[in-house]
Design a protein around this nucleic acid. Structure first.
Lengths: 113, 113
DNA sequence: GGATAAGTTAGCCATATTGCTAACCATATA
DNA sequence: TATATGGTTAGCAATATGGCTAACTTATCC
């Protein structure tokens, strides 16, 4: 059963492979068929298909079949989930840094008296 | 040999596990020792240590040992690398959407004449 | 010095991941 | 209808991952 919600485990796992990231960079420009996507890689097609499955599992791409050709397109939701989590952490971290900076400044000011 | 540069493979891999993301969320607030970090998890300590190693490998945390206690702190570089890549893709994707929207608008306008 | 606390190392096991080949649909095309 | 094209399925092998226990080192505390 495919994980359409694209939870963080599967999203980040999908992004942890260079082949899969390359596919993402390709699809960011336009949708493409499986063989078009596979062309740049030396890999056998069944191996490549597994990568596509992992991307789809992570909600990073979606695909539909018309006739005998399957067309893949990028899904923004997966990217958004990952970027959202990272952004949250960074903002929390920056806020902490600000607090620390304020605290240090306060200490220095008091010591300066 | 540790991967201090935090390339995307190791960064995303490190983030693909809930235990490791929980450690990140904890460290975003303040540095902490290994046992402090391990406390919320049922896992045996050696297992937990492997997770810390993966995070450090990905350049997401760093640690130093003082006496017998190892203190871990968050490293922003790993987060920045991951967020940077994701942001790039999203921007490219949005730009494509804009182009597409412009194109569609253009077509509609011409058809409207 | 002896006990305790904080990590660490080594090694084992089960499962997941990533690659392959071979064989097999299903749909276009000649 | 025969053949090629695009994709899929099944199954194998090597390696990686994520968990464990047992044993060990190195501080720190009494």
């Amino acid at each position: 059963m495919a994980n359409l919600s694209g939870d963080l485990d599967t999203v980040f796992h999908a992004l942890s492979d260079p082949t899969r990231r390359a596919v993402m960079r390709r699809l960011v420009r336009s949708p493409a068929s499986v063989t078009e996507l596979a062309a740049p890689f030396e890999m056998a097609l069944p191996s490549f298909l597994k990568h596509l499955a992992v991307l789809e599992e992570g909600g990073l791409i979606s695909s539909t079949k018309a006739g005998r050709v399957r067309r893949c397109r990028l899904r923004a939701t997966g990217l958004a989930a990952a970027e959202g989590w990272l952004g949250d952490q960074r903002r929390l971290w920056e806020r902490r840094s600000d607090r620390l900076a304020q605290y240090v400044e306060l200490r220095l000011t008091r010591e300066g008296r």
